[in-house]
């Protein structure tokens, strides 16, 4: 093959790339500008998120400070009222007791609080975006690729600019988790509204409904099953991201896992991993059962 390489000009053999010097210069310039930006704006952005941090800390404190048996009873009750299923409720109860017995109660509470806050935040921000997307094909065409990037970008890459901007801590962690967990709720809200029966929508129009009335009375209730699936996905994504977020100082079940990786503590890793799985299953089953219960009217009871 040598004769071939000798015969070809240099730029056909090696990919003609930007010179290393220029590449370094480019990275350095961009990084520098971003650093300047974070120096100038970091404090204001942090101040902006301050109320959120306070709320998160307050919520975390409630979960940790309240005696464990009250929290245990409260979670079991919530699961029962959401699912009305003995199986799911008893399963959740046993899982939580085991978590406590193996000494992971406090970390679990931290994770639970960040997941709850992240999910709420993702819903509050994501649902309006999904609703707007469902109303405009143009917006849908713009937002969809952004969501693709958000979902496929390796999660560690998010951490870098956020940490440069806000340092390490709970708020950057929260932002990373929300960014990662938001795409499903946006996508499925959009999809659900677009799938609403055109005839029912036409009927709503024929009776002179305003846009708001259509949204509240028809589109949202009819797309609820899809939106619930989106919320469910969002919770799962948030749980997955909590471990990664522990890299930038988010406390909770992720940190012992991280510790276990660096120190090769097999048992500790597995236990905490299982605790995350348990929480995921509790959230998943309870929210799905709740979603299904909301759809009872779809069952036909006549012959």
């Amino acid at each position: 093959m040598d004769w071939l390489f000798n015969w070809m000009p240099e730029w056909l053999v090696e990919f003609p790339q930007i010179a290393g010097r220029n590449l370094r210069l480019m990275s350095r310039t961009i990084d520098q500008q971003y650093r300047d930006f974070s120096r100038a704006w970091g404090d204001s952005i942090e101040a902006f998120f301050r109320p959120l941090l306070d709320f998160l800390l307050w919520f975390e404190n409630i979960l940790i400070e309240t005696p464990w048996w009250i929290i245990l009873a409260a979670i079991t009750a919530i699961v029962w009222f959401a699912s009305r299923s003995k199986k799911i409720t008893i399963g959740s109860f046993v899982a939580l007791v085991l978590i406590g017995v193996f000494g992971m109660w406090e970390d679990t509470m931290r994770t639970l609080s960040i997941i709850t806050v992240c999910t709420l935040l993702a819903i509050v921000v994501g649902m309006p975006i999904g609703i707007l997307m469902s109303r405009s094909d143009k917006l849908q065409a713009t937002v969809n690729p952004i969501l693709d990037v958000m979902q496929t970008m390796p999660s560690f890459v998010y951490l870098i600019p956020i940490v440069m901007l806000l340092g390490i801590g709970l708020i950057p962690g929260l932002i990373v988790v929300v960014i990662y967990a938001m795409p499903p709720i946006i996508r499925l809200t959009n999809l659900g509204i677009r799938l609403v029966d055109k005839e029912v929508l036409e009927a709503a129009n024929a009776f002179g409904s305003s846009s708001w009335q259509k949204l509240v009375e028809v589109q949202l209730p009819l797309s609820l099953p899809t939106i619930m699936a989106g919320i469910n996905q969002t919770i799962m994504m948030a749980l997955a991201m909590v471990v990664v977020a522990s890299l930038i100082g988010v406390r909770g079940l992720g940190q012992p896992v991280l510790q276990a990786i660096t120190n090769q503590y097999f048992t500790q890793g597995v236990l905490n991993g299982l605790a995350i799985v348990a929480i995921a299953i509790i959230f998943d089953r309870a929210s799905q059962a709740y979603g299904q219960r909301l759809q009872r009217h779809r069952e036909a009871s006549h012959g």
């Binding site: 005839e199 009927a203 024929a206 002179g208 409904s209 009375e217 009819l222 779809r298």
Partner: peptide, 21 residues
């Protein structure tokens, strides 16, 4: 038009188009 549809004219549909929820 909204007012007109609310008060003056109403409609029945072939496939009923009831609100299932």
């Amino acid at each position: 038009l909204r007012e007109f549809r609310r008060h003056k004219i109403s409609m029945v549909f072939q496939r009923f188009a009831l609100l299932p929820h």
